[in-house]
Design a protein around this nucleic acid. Structure first.
Lengths: 212, 212
DNA sequence: GATAAGTTTGACCAATCGGTCAATTCTTCT
DNA sequence: AGAAGAATTGACCGATTGGTCAAACTTATC
């Protein structure tokens, strides 16, 4: 039930100043997108002179690509959680749970993804058309098999995955909106657990046959 | 079933060049966010000299506020669709349907909203804490009444609204991702209708008592 | 402790940023 | 037709942008 996904460090190992720059870049890119971000602001958050940033990352785009690559790696890691069970209810619950935990632990990564899609995915476009599409297709096959076996209600698997992605992503990307609706405070651990449990329950009720 | 929401013109009446600037600004702000957008790019898309833009909108921020206000107006219009029926299934179906249609017809508006939230809602923050919170609270009361009456499964209404908002918003904000997964083409009308129908069905199954 | 390699930094540059302004053109009214 | 106001425009301004560079400073190696 609890997640093993503890991201104390990023996927790619970095240390010292390089890591400070990397983390600063993540937060700035998540907030302002690629175009809206400035190397000066990143350097400021990393507490280093701007010139020093360009020693580790030659251009703003190189830094953005490094950050983006890291986000994709995390996505692929989470994706595998879908496959670890043969039972649809378990697989879906595990996947949604993992995605929710990711949104909670690494909202910045999720926001970088969202921001990248908003501007037309110029950097991760290739990934979407290849790795992501492959993943989706193969999981659609699995879901269709479950439907034929009567373990899931008839449906188009793709739109179900969109619901899962949308909901889990929402808890990262719209954290600000949720805070405003929650007295200015972020969701507490208890609130988040309730949200996660309920989301899984609603999704499962939505696709499991009635008698289950 | 079909939506009455035809947004051939924006909420606020505008004409001629002012409208061209307004629409150009919408598309640029949606793509790059406030900071990442430039008045030069907006002027270019509006096919006017940059100086002319400042005749109608004194500053970039004034233009952004005008665009943002328009998005909020559209949101409030859609919100009312929840109230038009006494039956929970009908109310939810109508609301989701309206929101889906909005995402389809005005994805740019949805993206401006998302982009604004991503950077901490500096402009619409007040709206979130007042009008949106009021709306949410009063609808939570309605949903709780339905739950007590046994018309809906026990749940925290808020997280259910988050699911609805997330899913409907996803079809606007992540259109680029969906295109990449759909052979580079946007969802056809038929595909979109299928997605909408299935989304409503899954959500309703998820919250309606089993015997229904 | 000298030398070389790796790291840090302030000063600087051309390009772009949001915005101004005076001059010009177009509309409207009489 | 001609005056008055509204709309349009190129030229321009100071500030900020991403990025460079040579000089200074640290660190590891002998």
């Amino acid at each position: 039930m609890a997640s093993e996904l503890i991201r104390t460090s990023r996927a790619t190992a970095r240390e010292g100043r390089e890591n400070a720059i990397f983390e600063a870049a993540r937060s700035v890119f998540a907030e302002y997108g690629f175009k809206g971000s400035t190397t000066a602001e990143i350097a400021k958050r990393a507490e280093i002179p701007k010139a020093n940033l360009h020693y580790y990352f030659p251009t703003k785009e190189a830094l953005y690509r490094a950050v983006t690559e890291d986000v994709l790696t995390a996505w692929l890691e989470a994706a595998s959680s879908f496959d670890e069970s043969a039972d649809p209810a378990e697989a879906i619950a595990a996947y949604v749970s993992t995605k929710m935990d990711m949104a909670r632990q690494d909202p910045i990564g999720s926001r970088i993804w969202a921001s990248e899609i908003l501007r037309g995915a110029p950097v991760i476009g290739d990934f979407l058309e290849t790795a992501l599409l492959d993943w989706l297709k193969s999981r659609e096959t699995i879901v269709r098999r479950w439907i034929k076996a009567g373990k899931l209600v008839p449906m188009e698997p793709r739109y179900f995955f969109y619901m899962i992605w949308a909901t889990t992503q929402h808890y990262a990307d719209f954290e600000g909106q949720m805070m405003a609706l929650n007295g200015g405070k972020p969701l507490s651990d208890a609130q988040f657990e309730a949200a996660k449990t309920q989301t899984i329950a609603t999704l499962l009720r939505g696709v499991l046959p009635s008698g289950t």
